[in-house]
C-alpha cells in the first residue's frame, strides 16, 4: 500500500468522515482531506488533486453524483469511489455512466475500503 496516496473524503456525516479517517490512518495514509458537501467536494478536488475520492451521494448543496460529474469534467481520469447507503439500481447506473471508479454500499467495512485502495495501487 502506497502511503503517499492523497485521499479526499466527501461526506456530510462527521461520524463517517471520522471512521474513514481511521481506516486510512491504519493503512499508513496521512494525506487525508475532507469535504462536507458536494460543492466543497469539487472545490477541494481542484485544490488538492487527490489520487482517490470517496464520495457520499446524499449531501447538502450538491449531490455526490453531481459532484462526480463536475470532477470528471475537471479530470476525466479522476478516481471517484461512490460510498453510499443508497445503493439503488438507479444510483449505481448513474454512478457508472458518469465515470465512477467503484461503488461501496454503506455501512462501510474496513475490508471494502482497503480492497479499493489496493486496486488503485496496482
Amino acid at each position: 500500500m502506497s502511503k503517499d496516496l492523497k485521499v479526499l473524503i466527501c461526506d456530510d456525516s462527521a461520524l463517517v468522515r471520522k471512521q474513514m479517517n481511521k481506516i486510512f490512518s491504519s493503512q499508513g495514509i496521512s494525506n487525508i482531506f475532507e469535504a462536507v458537501d458536494g460543492e466543497q467536494a469539487v472545490i477541494k478536488y481542484a485544490e488538492v488533486m487527490p489520487d482517490v475520492v470517496f464520495m457520499d451521494i446524499v449531501m447538502p448543496k450538491k449531490t455526490g453524483v453531481d459532484a462526480l460529474k463536475d470532477i470528471m469534467s475537471l479530470n476525466p481520469a479522476a478516481k471517484v469511489v461512490m460510498a453510499s447507503s443508497v445503493g439503488t439500481q438507479a444510483n449505481l447506473k448513474d454512478a457508472i455512466e458518469n465515470g465512477a471508479y467503484d461503488f461501496i454500499q454503506k455501512p462501510l467495512s474496513e475490508d471494502s475500503v482497503v480492497k479499493i485502495l489496493e486496486k488503485i495501487n496496482e
Binding site: 456525516s13 463517517v16 446524499v58 449531501m59 443508497v86 439503488t88 439500481q89 438507479a90 454500499q105 454503506k106
Partner: peptide, 28 residues
C-alpha cells in the same frame, strides 16, 4: 443519530429498488 437514520433509509431504498424495481431518493 442523523447517520443512523440516513443509513436505515438508504437500506430501505435499496430494498424497494431490488424487490419492486421502484426508485426512491433521499434528501439530506
Amino acid at each position: 443519530l442523523s447517520e443512523f437514520l440516513n443509513l436505515h433509509n438508504g437500506l430501505f431504498a435499496v430494498n424497494v429498488s431490488n424487490e419492486e424495481g421502484n426508485e426512491l431518493s433521499l434528501d439530506p
